[in-house]
Design a protein around this nucleic acid. Sequence first.
DNA 1: CTGAAAGCGCTTACAG
DNA 2: CTGAAAGCGCTTACAG
Lengths: 334, 334
Amino acid sequence: LGNLTLHDVAREANVSHTTVSFVLKGDPRISAATAERVLAVVKRLGYVPNEMARCLAKGCTSTIALVSPTFSTAYESELLRGIEETMASKHPDYVLVHYSTAGGQERAEALWKQMLRGNRADGFICLSDPPSQSLRQDFAKSRKALVLLDDHIEDTCCIRGDGRLGAQLATEHLLQQGSRRLAIVTSITSEQNQPRCNPERLETFRDICRKSGLEPGHLTVNHYHPDAGKELVSSILRHAWDGIFCAAGDMVSAGIIAGCRLHGVAIPDKLRLIGYDDLPLASLIAPSLTTISQPLFEMGKAAVERCFSLIETRETESPKHIKFDARLIQREST
Amino acid sequence: LGNLTLHDVAREANVSHTTVSFVLKGDPRISAATAERVLAVVKRLGYVPNEMARCLAKGCTSTIALVSPTFSTAYESELLRGIEETMASKHPDYVLVHYSTAGGQERAEALWKQMLRGNRADGFICLSDPPSQSLRQDFAKSRKALVLLDDHIEDTCCIRGDGRLGAQLATEHLLQQGSRRLAIVTSITSEQNQPRCNPERLETFRDICRKSGLEPGHLTVNHYHPDAGKELVSSILRHAWDGIFCAAGDMVSAGIIAGCRLHGVAIPDKLRLIGYDDLPLASLIAPSLTTISQPLFEMGKAAVERCFSLIETRETESPKHIKFDARLIQREST
DNA sequence: CTGAAAGCGCTTACAG
DNA sequence: CTGAAAGCGCTTACAG
C-alpha cells in the first residue's frame, strides 16, 4: 500500500529494476556511475527491500532464530547477552529474532514446523526442549542450522556447561563442609514445556553420595521462581536435610533462603546450600549464596559461532558437542 | 530444496492448487468431501505453507513484533509474561517475535526500517526508545500497528505506569519516615540505546521536594545492574543523603544496599531507600526493599490488546494513552 | 555494461 | 463446486 518497490526506484533512476537489484547487492557488473546514481535515488526515496519477496526469491532469510521456553527467564540473561552481542558485532547483516515455545508441547511443535517450513530463519539456536527427532531430520534435510544449548543429543550440535563437573564440585564441597544428609533440588522434566532437569547433575550427585555411603535425597520444583524454593522448606525440615545442592538454580535457592529465614533455620549452621548459575542475585541476598558458575556469555557466543559455521560450510560431518567449564563460587551459604 | 509446495499436495489429492489453498483457509466454497481428502493429504505429507510466499501474496504477516533494547532485561520479565500469555491465549494463530535494538542508535534505526519496510510484522510493541517521528509517520502510512510501552508520545498509542503517582508515593513516604536530605537515582537518557530516564518520576520528585523546602539531589546510573548501584554509595555518603528514591529500579537498589553493607551504612536507620518495579528480588534481599509496584503483567496484556484493536479496526482516530496504577510496597528498607 | 523473462510459493478475484 | 490466470516484490540465469 503505497510502499516503494524496486520498480519505483528503477523508474526514478532511469534503469531497469534488474539493475537496481544488482546495485543493491553490489554486483560488480554495474558501472560505478550507474551504481552511484541508483544509490542516490534509493537514499532519497528511502527505499528498503521487501524482505518477504527477497526471501522467497533467494530461498534464504538472513535471520537467525533464538528459540526459548519463554521470553522472560532471568537465568538466561548472560547467555542471551552473549548471543546478542556476538550477532551484533560479527554478523550485523543478520537479524536475530526470538521465539518463545511457551504454551505447551503442541504449540511448540507447531511453532517449530512454522519456523522450519515457513522458512523463517536460516539458523536456529534452541534453549527450549529440543525439537523431536523427526523435526530434527527435517532440519537436516532442509539444510537449516540447528544448535542446541544445554542439551546433549547425538545427532545435533550442542553447546553446554559441564553438568558433571558442576555437580561434583557442589557435592564434594557440601561433604567437605560436613553435611551428611544431602538432597538435590531439580526441576521436573515434563511434556508441558515446563522446566526440565539436567540429568548429568542429578546422576553425578547421586553417584558421589552413594560412593560416600549416603542415601541421596531428591526434591523437585516445577518453576524457576523463589516461591517454589520457599515451598520446599517444610519438606527440607521434615527430612532434616543438612546439605542442599539446588541444581534448579539461584532463583529457587534464593527462595529456600527466604523460607529458611521464616522458619528460623540458620544457614549455613543448620543447612548448607549451593545454587547454580551465579546470578547477580547470588551475591546480594543474605546470607550470600555459594553457587556454581558457568561461562554463560561465552556459551552464547559459541552458539552463534557454531550456527554460522553450520550455515557457511553446510557441514554434514558429525555434529560437534562443545562443553564448557564450571566452577564453584563460595559465599556465606556453605 | 525438496520442500513440499501447494502443488505437491494438489497433485497428490487430484485437485488444483487453488483448491488446496481454499481448503487451508477454510473457504466454504469447497465441499466437505474434497476438503477432507485434501486435509488428509496435507497431514500425511506434513505440508506447512511457506510463510514468506504467503505473506508476499497476502501483504500481511500474522506476526507481532516485540521490540526491546535487549533480550535480557530482568525488570521486564512480568511485562513479557503478560505479552506472551495474552498472545498465546487470545491470538494463537499469530506468531510473536522478539527483536532487540541493542547496538546503538543507528542499528536501531536500521532495524526499524527493516521491520517496517521489510514487512516483518503486522503490529509492533515497543519497549525500546520509540522510533523517530519520520519512522512513526511511515508506520501510520503503511497501516502497521504501533504500541509504545512506558512512553508518552502524543501521536502514538502508549501504555504506561503512572510515574507521577509512583514518584509521589515514594517521595512522600520518605518524608513521612523522617528523611530530609533526599536524592533520586535515575538512568541516563542517551543516544546510545542506553537506559532512559522517566521524566515524570524525576519532575514529580523534584516538585514535592521543593514544595517541602528541600533541595532535591540527583544521581545517575548508565545501566540497570547492581554494580551501578554499588558505585553510587560513596557519592551518597559524601552528600549525606538520608533518603533515596531509586527510580532506576530494584536491581540498582539492590546494589545500593550491597554497597551500604560494605560501607557499614545502616538501612533504614541512616539511609532510607525505595526502589521501583517490585521484582522478586525485592523481598529476598536483606534488608528487604520498599518499592513501587506496577501491574506489569496487566500492562503487557493491554499492549497486546491495543495492538490487535489497531490492526482490526485500522483506527485513524486519536491514539489512546492508557495509564496504569502504582502502589507502594513497604518493606524493611524504609 | 544493461535488460527481458522466468521463477520463488503462495492468494484471490474471475470465469466456468 | 472447482480451476486458469494474474500478481505479490524480489533474484538470477541468460541474452544482447
